[in-house]
C-alpha cells in the first residue's frame, strides 16, 4: 500500500512486513514478532489474526475465517482496529 494512512479495503491482502519474523514459540506458548530491535509477544487474538496475514487471503476471507475460529460474528470492529494498529506499527503491509 502506498498511501500510509489509507484504511484497508475488503479486497486487500495484508502480509507481514518482511523485516519481521513471525512465528510460534513453544517456550512462550505464544506467537512472536521478532524484528531487528526487539521482540513482541502477541496475545492469542493478535497472533491468530497475523497468522492469516499471508499476502494470499483478502481481508474479507480473514474476517470470515476468524469468525469461525472465535465462534463469534461480531469481530469485524476488533479485527480492523488491530489491523490499523499493526499497520501503523509497520508490522503489516497490504497489496490489492
Amino acid at each position: 500500500m502506498t498511501s500510509s494512512n489509507a484504511p484497508f479495503a475488503l479486497n486487500e491482502r495484508p502480509e507481514i512486513n518482511p523485516v519481521f519474523l513471525f512465528r510460534w514459540e513453544e517456550q512462550e506458548q505464544a506467537y512472536l514478532l521478532l524484528y531487528p530491535e526487539g521482540i513482541i509477544k502477541l496475545n492469542d487474538s493478535a497472533g491468530n489474526i497475523l497468522k492469516l496475514c499471508d499476502g494470499e487471503r483478502t481481508i474479507e476471507t480473514i474476517v470470515a475465517e476468524l469468525k469461525v475460529l472465535f465462534g463469534n460474528d461480531n469481530i469485524e470492529g476488533d479485527v480492523y482496529n488491530f489491523m490499523e494498529v499493526a499497520h501503523g506499527k509497520g508490522w503489516i503491509t497490504a497489496k490489492a
Binding site: 513482541i40 509477544k41 496475545n43 493478535a46 482496529n81 499493526a86
Partner: peptide, 17 residues
C-alpha cells in the same frame, strides 16, 4: 474475543532473550 489485540512486550521473565 475480548480486546482486539493488545501486544505484550517480552520483559525477559528471567530468560537471556
Amino acid at each position: 474475543m475480548g480486546k482486539g489485540g493488545s501486544q505484550l512486550k517480552l520483559d525477559g521473565d528471567g530468560k537471556p532473550l
